[in-house]
């Protein structure tokens, strides 16, 4: 099959667990159809084949944590017509951004026998903190249906249908009973970006905010509610410092609670 007019897709990895790329491999039924519409030019998780750029669509997973990453992401941007970030690492720095709140030197000497071998930046940051990105698909990991929607939207040159309202909207549309109201279980759904389909509330648990901040999160108001339900400042610091700890809104609120705690 000739690929001359087929758009070229590249999938890139930075600091991450590979889970989001795996979502693409997970699209078993659709992957074949995708590979007919897009030439998979670079996707090391799936194939050793590496076709040189430029690329029409780059999917970027992972956060920027080393000096090499900094250079590499610039090159990828230059070679990509569209650059889409996938997952919490790429959109907010990921769980590894917890280092941003600590001294990296200090804990690398505690963890590694020869810490001088470790060459790393002080922070783990999102792709958008370094280059212009065309779209961010949030989630830890991303939802594979949403990934297909983003790829389709790119192929058909339209806006992706990825609502940025709260998890509550999905929770209610699915007819679930609110765990916060009906059992006093603290839930992060009201400040969290939709996308998971409210999986946790469906299993009677509060939302953990895997999908990061929603479009206009009122983290202060939700924190007050959590406190009424018995959460301490420490608890609040912890729940906002998970997979999306360095996302702007979560970062700000966890620092706020940390200061108050002291």
């Amino acid at each position: 099959m000739s690929h001359s007019s087929t758009p070229k897709l590249a999938v890139w990895k930075f600091a991450s667990c590979d889970g989001c790329q795996l979502s693409l491999l997970d699209c078993e039924d659709e992957l074949l159809a995708i590979s007919e519409k897009l030439e998979i030019a670079h996707f090391l998780e799936a194939s050793r084949l590496q076709i040189a750029g430029p690329y029409d669509l780059s999917l970027v997973e992972g956060s920027i944590t080393t000096a090499q990453d900094l250079e590499k992401i610039q090159k990828i941007r230059q070679q990509s017509k569209y650059l889409v970030c996938i997952g919490a690492c790429a959109t907010s720095g990921g769980i590894q951004a917890l280092r941003n709140f600590q001294d990296v030197k200090e804990f690398s000497s505690a963890v590694y026998a020869k810490p001088h071998y470790i060459e790393t930046l002080k922070t783990s940051t999102s792709i958008a903190s370094h280059v212009l990105v065309d779209f961010e698909l949030q989630g830890c990991p991303i939802n594979k249906k949403q990934l297909i929607e983003v790829i389709l939207a790119f192929l058909q040159q339209r806006q992706p249908n990825i609502p940025s309202y709260s998890v509550c909207v999905e929770c209610k549309q699915a007819g679930k009973v609110c765990v916060m109201v009906a059992s006093g279980t603290p839930c992060l759904g009201p400040v969290t970006h939709a996308g998971c389909g409210a999986v946790c509330p469906a299993y009677h648990r509060g939302c953990y905010a895997c999908y990061g901040p929603m479009e206009s999160p009122n983290t202060q108001a939700l924190s007050r509610r959590w406190q009424d339900l018995g959460a301490s400042r420490k608890d609040l610091v912890r729940v906002f410092r998970t997979f999306n700890a360095y996302a702007n809104d979560f970062h700000k609120i966890s620092e706020f609670h940390e200061k108050k705690e002291k």
Binding site: I148, L152, S166, K172, P190, P217, Q220
Partner: peptide
């Protein structure tokens, strides 16, 4: 506004709220 989460729960549960959006969905075949 200080208290409201803009979570939309009130509109989801309200028996009269009727607002909708439309989404065009397409498949890979085009």
């Amino acid at each position: 506004a200080e208290r409201c989460l803009s979570c939309a729960n009130c509109t989801m549960v309200c028996p009269t709220c009727f607002c909708t959006t439309v989404e065009d969905v397409s498949d890979l075949s085009g």
